[in-house]
Design a binder for these strands. Sequence first.
DNA 1: CAAGGAAGTAACTAGTTAGTGCGTTAGTCT
DNA 2: AGACTAACGCACTAACTAGTTACTTCCTTG
Lengths: 211, 211
Amino acid sequence: MDKPAKQRDAEATKARILAAAKKEFAKNGLAGARVDVIADRAKANKRMIYHYFGNKEDLFQIVLEEAYIDIRTAEQKLELNNIPPREALEKLVRFTWTYYLKNPEFITLVNSENLHKARHLKKSQMIEKVSRRFVDMVARLLERGTAEGAFRPGIDPVQLNITIAAIGYYYLTNRFTGSIVFQRDLMAADALDERLRFNIETILRLVCVEL
Amino acid sequence: MDKPAKQRDAEATKARILAAAKKEFAKNGLAGARVDVIADRAKANKRMIYHYFGNKEDLFQIVLEEAYIDIRTAEQKLELNNIPPREALEKLVRFTWTYYLKNPEFITLVNSENLHKARHLKKSQMIEKVSRRFVDMVARLLERGTAEGAFRPGIDPVQLNITIAAIGYYYLTNRFTGSIVFQRDLMAADALDERLRFNIETILRLVCVEL
DNA sequence: CAAGGAAGTAACTAGTTAGTGCGTTAGTCT
DNA sequence: AGACTAACGCACTAACTAGTTACTTCCTTG
């Protein structure tokens, strides 16, 4: 069922445009991004962008949606409910940190979207669906841990989710100003290891009955 | 209809430009901000902006510097070393949260600066000085708490500072996408109270020997 | 195989935007 | 008073940028 290699390939062109757009939007934000740059980097013509995606903002919206779907999909693959609660929690903290570290565009795109008061995400129905599944996963983990007596009762899964994200996200999104303010290279390999360790400790102390 | 004699006041004009610029840069980022809008809102002429501040980027840099100096100054006024360690720590968490909440431009300006890899902050000497004083303050607090047996030993003041900032900053900067992802109005009054409570608990559990 | 549609391109337009040239007005100093 | 300096303002430009027009090239299918 393989399609023969075409000289013309709409899907491939769309994919190249999306990849280039992700990079450009992440680097310069929505206002700072240049459509011409996206076209060039995608080895496509600017006209193709407007043909496939409508306009700059619509393109941004699709890039953003894909970024959210990507992280939520990766999270589901963790299958946290097949391992002991405490290990699962640590695994989630570790995953979140590593995902942000390896996908720095995600952070920048989310920042951009918040600068625009999430007006693009608001239009997306898909996001609500995948987000609910994500919150449910952590809620179930908390229930399981509480039932086993490992986790403190009464922890709000949303607050926990936000906190797990926060301690990784903030460190990485503010790595440039942070390296100046704290006069330390926050992106040095040992600094990154140390931060992950600290984050795991923060969350375990918050959630677990005893260490 | 006589025009009232127009008072000339360079300092007042500069101040109006800075205030307008802060608002515009915070709202739209460096690339999205419009110099004409700043001039209009400052009830000044665009020519004055270039006369006093050189260019758009230099203006951004000064706005950013002032924002940093403002928060660092407010932090120093806390005088954390005159109250018991545990209370001082809680006070710092509470202050950080409240400052971000009441000064949303600070967060957005810092985000913008990080999008630009902190290239403006790098040029500023003042920042390093006020930042060091800030880290020292928290370091002394940690030492004091550890000496009294209230705090766990070996906590890195930089990691703690980052974490205290993170749990407030992330919640607020991502309040728009967060309200969609978590399907909850993160800015409702009770949600804000609840978050502050949760943040205090997070930090106390991280730092204190026992609650 | 011809025909129609889809993929792809170059050159253009209309509007925007940072930055300026140059002139005017108000306050100050001698 | 007159001269000098600094505050202020208008109107312009050169460069840029999102989006479009009008066209060519290639592929599929009836």
